[in-house]
Computed example of a mutant assay.
Amino acid sequence: MGITKLSDLIRNEAPSAISYKEISDYTGKTIAVDASIVLNQFRTAIPRLHNRNGVNLSPLIGLFYRTLCFLEHDIKPVFVFDGCPPEQKKSVLERRAKASGWSGSYGSSSVSTQVQDCQTLLHHLGVPYVQAPGDAEAFCAQLVKDRKVDAVASEDMDTMAFGSDLLIRQLNAKKNSEVMEYSLPKVLAALQLTYKEFVDLCILLGCDYCEKIQGLGPKRALQLIQEHKTIEKVVLHINRKTHPIPLAWRYRDARELFFQTPQGSQPDLVWKEPDEQELVNFLCHQKHVKEEKVRGRMEKFCQTLTERRREREETNTAEKGKQTCIKDFFRVTRKRQVWNKKVH
């Protein structure tokens, strides 16, 4: 869910904080990808892609194609997987899993077989992945703050509440100008909020870590935070009959979770060339995906890389062929004075 109606609020109240781009605009960039979002997208979009053993392969195959698409655009993805979620979020995750028919272990840090398969696939693709100690969104945001990556790719808006300066949505968009980039500094400037006030706004809007004040809409929540600055002061200035405060409201715990620095060692991010034979062994021989599909996609991938390298070489050759004179580098402001000085 992320932050309820935050994207609508930004679009209406801070439209200048959103840039509409194309996937090619991120060539050369390192992007942290919220892996659970990608897997859930393919689990929902292609729910009946099973192999002969009845195993649902839609997340695995979707991840294969999506990752190759990123690499073809010279994007360096880092996939971040959820660890053990905080206690406040477990009930939310259980409700979502039950609604979608997906079962997962939310009470421990154990990694499901499907996630292990996805991590094996990424290894053969030569793409690094990270097992977050807690929520993937929080760790993605921390990677941005540590300057390990340039931005976060996720459909959940809560990476902004965790402090990521840049959030990219719909990075897989096929049409031009459908990729949306959200700038946290621009959001804060347009809404005239500090980061701490923004986090309190996100809690009032509704997040995964606590209940919200019922009946309090996005525009009114923004007005209250702009005027009163903190949740503690907001609750003193609302009508509790029309906007009842949740019993034992744990908004302070939610606020602390957004401010916490995720624990865990710094990841070693290394990208390598995909290993086609290992991909065939894993996807075709172990998971029973048709070999012609895997081979065909890898052939297209190699052709794309070869063409891109050729284009770069032609560009470099053209640039080297240009004649450049010294005044193109240094602007001449005045002639040097000639000294006729006798040597004694």
Score class of each variant (00 low, 15 high):
85 P>M: 06
255 R>K: 05
343 V>M: 12
177 S>V: 07
256 E>P: 00
305 L>S: 09
103 S>L: 08
116 Q>A: 11
301 F>N: 09
75 I>P: 01
265 S>F: 03
164 S>L: 07
178 E>D: 11
179 V>Y: 03
163 G>A: 07
275 D>G: 03
99 A>E: 09
168 I>H: 04
246 P>Y: 11
44 T>V: 08
49 L>H: 12
32 A>G: 10
65 Y>F: 14
63 L>P: 02
58 S>L: 13
23 I>W: 00
238 I>R: 02
300 K>E: 11
61 I>R: 04
277 Q>V: 11
65 Y>T: 09
179 V>R: 06
300 K>C: 04
148 K>P: 00
279 L>W: 06
288 H>E: 14
241 K>S: 08
109 S>Q: 09
136 A>K: 08
95 R>V: 13
180 M>R: 15
239 N>Y: 02
164 S>W: 07
275 D>F: 03
295 R>C: 11
308 R>T: 12
45 A>T: 15
343 V>E: 08
288 H>P: 01
172 N>K: 11
20 Y>A: 06
172 N>D: 15
248 A>R: 12
219 K>I: 13
190 A>C: 11
188 L>N: 08
260 Q>T: 09
73 H>A: 03
70 F>P: 06
231 I>L: 05
301 F>Q: 05
216 L>H: 06
29 K>N: 10
68 L>N: 06
260 Q>F: 00
190 A>G: 03
294 V>P: 06
60 L>H: 01
175 K>M: 11
246 P>F: 11
322 K>V: 07
111 V>T: 14
84 C>K: 15
178 E>K: 15
81 F>A: 06
279 L>N: 07
277 Q>D: 14
19 S>V: 07
98 K>V: 05
81 F>N: 07
177 S>A: 14
249 W>L: 03
222 L>W: 05
146 D>I: 11
336 R>V: 05
309 R>A: 12
238 I>H: 01
131 Q>N: 15
253 D>Q: 11
133 P>S: 15
170 Q>E: 14
23 I>D: 00
155 E>P: 01
243 H>W: 02
334 R>H: 12
259 F>Q: 10
106 Y>S: 04
